[in-house]
Design a protein around this nucleic acid. Structure first.
Lengths: 149, 149
DNA sequence: CTAATACCAAGTAAATTACTAGGGATTACC
DNA sequence: GGTAATCCCTAGTAATTTACTTGGTATTAG
């Protein structure tokens, strides 16, 4: 029941993007360097974020990524689901369609538990916006200038 | 972010135990057959449940397992944590000790999110008792007799 | 034209999962 | 006291998943 590096790295990376993209697009390479992550691995994560329309990109020299919307309109839930697929604890209660019959064709006896866990998780992550993480960041790093963060 | 078969099979199995052990101990073999699970794999899961003192066992012929306490005193959280280790979404916020420095020695910027997810999950699973699952079961299976469940 | 960037697909090593195998220990029953 | 049913324990292993890397192509500013 652990998050994969997709969710962990991806949230860190998009937060880094949010903290640095006020003045326009920023490159994957700069995010990778600041966060100590592999650039080519981040490419895959950003492809998923872009597919979910959470970020936009500009190609060519001076190109880069930026948020597709204001940070208060992007939730941690949007981000994690884009990266992890679904945050449901079992496939049989995943939001995305194909949860073929849970068990031997009859309703799974523990299904209600998985649904409650899924809803509990979604309730948490859908109520944290990227803006809140930005605010938290500045609250915890008062002494550093934004461009140095 | 998916539960492993330990958690899924284990919860099913202990619920099966709870539903059938009113009259004393029942064998792993009978649980495995009813639930369509491997008996030898269940052995490992029951070893974990026993270590967590959620179940008791009697050895020898006519032996078997039974709950260590009344089902209203056993929570789904107790069961899942016994089986999965911790339900925290990352090691760095797991309840069990050793979460060595989250990141490059300074506080991880996304840690607050993982803590909230962890607390959200625990809040759900610690507030569902095995008794509630038993009640749910009978509510959904009114037509079947308890001994046939 | 060149170089910097995003974009894409496929391959791969390591780790984890989900078991199985092969026993041993205990004890009711005859 | 022998037998067989049961719990108990350790280690092995095949399959799957993860966490990347590799080796490109496409786009575009300068």
């Amino acid at each position: 029941m652990k998050l994969s590096t997709k969710g962990r790295y991806g949230l860190k990376a998009i937060l880094d993007l949010a903290l640095h993209s006020a003045d326009g697009q920023i490159t994957l390479n700069s995010i990778a360097e600041r966060q100590g992550l592999s650039e080519s691995y981040l490419e895959q994560l950003f492809a998923a974020l872009k597919k979910a329309e959470l970020i936009k990109s500009i190609r060519g020299p001076q190109g880069g990524y930026m948020l597709a919307d204001d940070p208060e309109n992007i939730s941690v839930g949007d981000i994690l689901r884009a990266l992890e697929g679904s945050m449901a604890p079992t496939d049989c209660v995943a939001e995305n369609g194909h949860h073929d019959l849970c068990d031997s064709s009859d309703r799974c006896i523990t299904r209600g538990v998985w649904e409650k866990i899924r809803d509990g998780i979604n309730n948490v992550i859908d109520n944290i916006s990227l803006q809140e993480l930005i605010d938290d960041y500045y609250r915890n790093n008062k002494k550093r200038a934004p461009d140095n963060a």
